[in-house]
Structure formats: C-alpha cells, structure tokens
Simulated assay, not measured.
Amino acid sequence: MDYSTIVLRTIFIYFIILFVLRFMGKREIGQLSVLDFVVSIMIAELAVISIENIRVPMLNTIVPIVVLSLIQIIFAFISLKSEKLRKLVDGKPSVLINQGKIDEGEMRKQRYNFDDLLTQLRQNKVSKLSDVEFAILEPSGKLSVIEKDKDQPNNRQSRLPLPLILDGKVNEDHLEQIEKTPLWLRQQLRKLGYRDVKKISYCALHDDDTFFIDLKDEK
C-alpha cells in the first residue's frame, strides 16, 4: 500500500471539500436542512472512496463533488425567490407549544415525543414547561423556545412572531393564524404610508399591535 499517495490524496481532498463548503456558503455549516444533509453525506462518501481506492482517478471524485455543490447553490438561489420551493426542500417550522399549550397532534405528526421536547427545552436552559409561551421545531430539527413575558398582564395573549411579509410577498398562512386578512394588512400598511408591498423586505406584527417593517435595500 502506497501510504504517501494516500496522505497526498487526503490533503488534496481536504482542501477541495473546504473550498466547496466555503463556496456553498455559511448556511451549509450552520444550519443543515434535509437537502444540505444529503449533499454532505454524498460528498463525504465520495471523499472516502477517493482516499481508500487509489486506483480510482481523483477526477472521478472531484467532478461529482463540484456537480453536487453547483446543484446545492442553484437550489439555494431559486429558493430565495420561491417560497414554495423553499418549503418543499427545507420544510417548514412546526409549532409544538402555542401560547403555553402543548399541541400533541403536531407532536405526533412530527413523530416527536415528550422526552424529545423536555430534552431540547433543557438544552435551551428552560426547566419548566409552564415557562414556555412558544416552542417551534425548526426544519433543521432545532427547537426554538420563546419564554413567557413575566411583565405582561395575564389577560393579554402573546402573539407568535410570524413574518407577515417576506421579500415583498404576503404570507397568507401566517395572517390566517392571527385571524387577519391580506386586505386588513394592506389597509394597515397604507395608514403607515406603505403602499407598495413589493418594496417591503420584512414585516411582522408585535404583541402591542405595532408593526416592524424593513424595506428592501434600505440604507
């Protein structure tokens, strides 16, 4: 066995994968969706094959790795423009605790048990279920936890901080969850001086019924 060849191949493949991951973007490292996970596994398998089997030309490994990275970049670019594709590829968040109440039906749908819930709450440094206002299972599998506001009056319900507008498009599903309509949203925005929804990058409604609005390419 030619150990020097194995060492050189290992070093070369290491730098190739490092370059590819950097080229694909920080999102690939910090937040793995299902597609990210599949691509990562395939790249790892190709790298192992190239290192173990020195009779296989390295080009046979490099070409598939480059193709996979290009596919990932293309999907990422298209998903920036298409919410439907983004949901199809990445999935969408699931609300497991809504206004302090556990949604057992959603937990069963996600095949998520109470041990999983309690474990991830502890990882978020939350010891009591009663302290949780919202718990959202993200597409990456991470649980995002929003604790109850102790200063808020008991008779006032908190609102899940959902984006009502993303990249110039109204999210009707989120409006339905807060029992509002697109017409209501447009009327409220016009009162604030915003007439063109397409110019809004992000819009959300706070618990005090005030809007947070960020315009596209705002300096």
Rank of each mutant, 00 (worst) to 15 (best):
I62G: 06
T181M: 01
S127W: 01
T10D: 07
M42Y: 05
D209V: 04
D214C: 01
F212E: 09
P64F: 08
D167M: 11
A135L: 08
E179T: 07
C203A: 13
Q157T: 11
S40K: 03
D167S: 14
I71C: 14
T61P: 01
F15N: 10
Y202G: 02
K101I: 13
S158F: 07
M107I: 08
I17D: 01
N53H: 15
T5V: 13
I54H: 05
P182N: 00
L68I: 13
L164K: 01
Y14F: 15
V170P: 02
I165C: 07
P57A: 03
I17P: 02
Y202T: 06
I102L: 11
K148H: 04
I41L: 09
R122A: 05
I11W: 14
L85S: 06
Y3W: 14
Q177W: 00
K219E: 11
Q188G: 06
M42F: 10
P93I: 13
P153Q: 13
D90T: 13
E147N: 11
F15T: 12
L88I: 11
G141Y: 10
Q177E: 10
F15V: 14
L192H: 08
K26S: 05
S50C: 15
I51E: 09
S50Q: 12
L129H: 04
V66K: 05
L35H: 08
T5I: 11
K169H: 10
M24H: 04
E176G: 12
A204Q: 12
Q157A: 07
F19Y: 09
V145K: 06
Y3T: 05
E147L: 07
F12S: 14
R159V: 14
R86E: 14
K125C: 10
R108G: 06
V126T: 09
D173C: 00
L121F: 02
M107G: 09
N113H: 08
K150Y: 06
I146A: 09
F212H: 00
P153G: 11
E138P: 10
S127V: 02
L32I: 09
V67I: 15
I73M: 15
I178M: 04
K191R: 14
Y3Q: 09
D173N: 11
Y202H: 01
L192V: 07
D217F: 01
Y3R: 04
K199F: 02
R9D: 12
S79Y: 06
R111N: 15
E179C: 00
I54D: 08
L192F: 03
